[in-house]
Design a binder for these strands. Sequence first.
DNA 1: CAGCTGGGCTAAACCGGTTTCGTAAACTAG
DNA 2: CTAGTTTACGAAACCGGTTTAGCCCAGCTG
Lengths: 332, 332
Amino acid sequence: MTTISQVAREAGYSPATVSRYLNNRIELPASTALRIDAAVARLGYRPNLLARRLSTGRTEAIGLVATEISNPFFAELAATIEVEAELHGYSVLMSTTRGAREREITYLGRLEDRHVDDLIMMTNEPDDGTLATNIDAHSNVVLVDEDVPGVAVPKVFVENEYGAYHATRHLIEAGHTRIAHTSGPRFLMSVRERMDGYLRALRENRVEPSMSRVLFGSYSRKFGADATDQMHSHADRPTAVFCGSDIVATGVMQRLREGGLNVPDDISVVGFDDMPFADMFAPALTTVRQPIETLGRKAFRALYALINKQETVAEERLPVSLVERQSVARRP
Amino acid sequence: MTTISQVAREAGYSPATVSRYLNNRIELPASTALRIDAAVARLGYRPNLLARRLSTGRTEAIGLVATEISNPFFAELAATIEVEAELHGYSVLMSTTRGAREREITYLGRLEDRHVDDLIMMTNEPDDGTLATNIDAHSNVVLVDEDVPGVAVPKVFVENEYGAYHATRHLIEAGHTRIAHTSGPRFLMSVRERMDGYLRALRENRVEPSMSRVLFGSYSRKFGADATDQMHSHADRPTAVFCGSDIVATGVMQRLREGGLNVPDDISVVGFDDMPFADMFAPALTTVRQPIETLGRKAFRALYALINKQETVAEERLPVSLVERQSVARRP
DNA sequence: CAGCTGGGCTAAACCGGTTTCGTAAACTAG
DNA sequence: CTAGTTTACGAAACCGGTTTAGCCCAGCTG
């Protein structure tokens, strides 16, 4: 490994000059520049990142914290963030919390440890306040897709309320009135907002909402299955269900099928997210699409603005759209 | 930020002693240990990683290079690698090549740049030799799931030939003889091996293989669709198709459905990988399961052995299994 | 009691860059 | 020709750890 001193010696200058030249912090006469360039080329010099990082104090890496990277929705989001980060010369350190709150806090600690300069967090479990205080102790965090209430960092979310409203109205327009809502963790922003949209659609169309029809749990396939069981113990069964996420919808559809029920003929299902392969399901899932790519890009941009101490918007909301496929049927 | 010198001063010892003690490189009398511990706690000392890295020359991070993290199979693999890495105190730097060979080589350069100590590569595009020579220049790379021919690094693969053999035999036992094979890039190890298994199953069961029935392309959904079109222009259409990967199978099934054909009644489909949600497809996909979790864990373990200069096996093969679902129907 | 051993600890070099401050030489203006 | 200003560059401090070589002294040995 050649060092900057070797390059300097080879070129006949000092390490300081070489460093400043290579980092464009100085204008040099053409002859000098040439000699340095030649020396760099001759020795195949590549600056030692570790040394540079120590001396500058910056790592040019960001952290990406998600609950599960194996969730296709997060995987896709991570992918777009990674692309955007690479574009700006940043590397991405990936970490999953697998539902453990303390791991989220551990990863925040990486900011202090200089592991990464900044963090993008996509959490999807409710917070009792500990996470919030931990995040607030840092100034270089961006929240994407899901809120952690009470923290003052840039946030990039989608129009949850409107998406849910739209989805529910779609079900109503197809003739459904007994519409269940199987969502996620009760105290999550997205869950509350989606429920709000669901309720508004019902009320605006004069169908009486019943809280016994809205089920909370976790954003997981298992909860979808469990919720389905619960729905069916209910007196008058729903003819349609609006799920808080596609993952939940897969659980619902799976259990429905196991129970011999046909989607959409016996019961209609709508999801939220439009995760990859939602169109391949049995049946293809009608769902509310989140603009994953834009979400990821905006999240990184917000972080980038933060890094460069530019003005950042406190919260951004991205539009969603209903994509109609085969999991909804008309009802007389 | 408190430094090790401040801790040393606070405790009344030298930085050297504190450093050695904190890294378990020295045995100290209990009284000394106590005073250092106390100083660390009092000042809330956290070692500066950047400094440590420069001085040790190690980053305690590994790189993960995949073509697409948004492919659920890779996402899942990445997730298990990340879990295993974290268990051993390593962070994971994620990078996707999006099919660009030069990006693969760029990421190899990160080894020299001390970005990461080691690299796990899951490539799935054929190599013209440039990647191979680049990999060979490094001693700390592990290949997982797919080979790059001619490089001498630890490799963790699955029993492709047997899996394909098994899948094809399953089709034959269901009465099929006109079985197509839509695979991936022709010169990929996995493609060749899976084709070998496919051909062996045919021959062992006295059905004459026809190379016009095996189609090569890319491991992508689009290729699955295109290949389906091509299959249908064929004189006597296949009654079943064995796909080289689930991603390809989704493309096949999608196009089949668009063409008004029913899976499995009109045509049976078998995939390879058992990617997440393969059981949710329409119909649920019969496929060859790769033990993703074991694959990821073994890959990291191989890398870890490399790091610690332990003996490593040159190549490991993991067993696969056929998981039967609804995409295959009997034929008289 | 001299010599040896080993425990406890540290000075100083080192990792390889970046950055600040400054100076000598060249150039410009008056 | 002198004073002031640029230009071109370098010495040295700094980032914050780790590690090597070795010092000092207590205790043991003969």
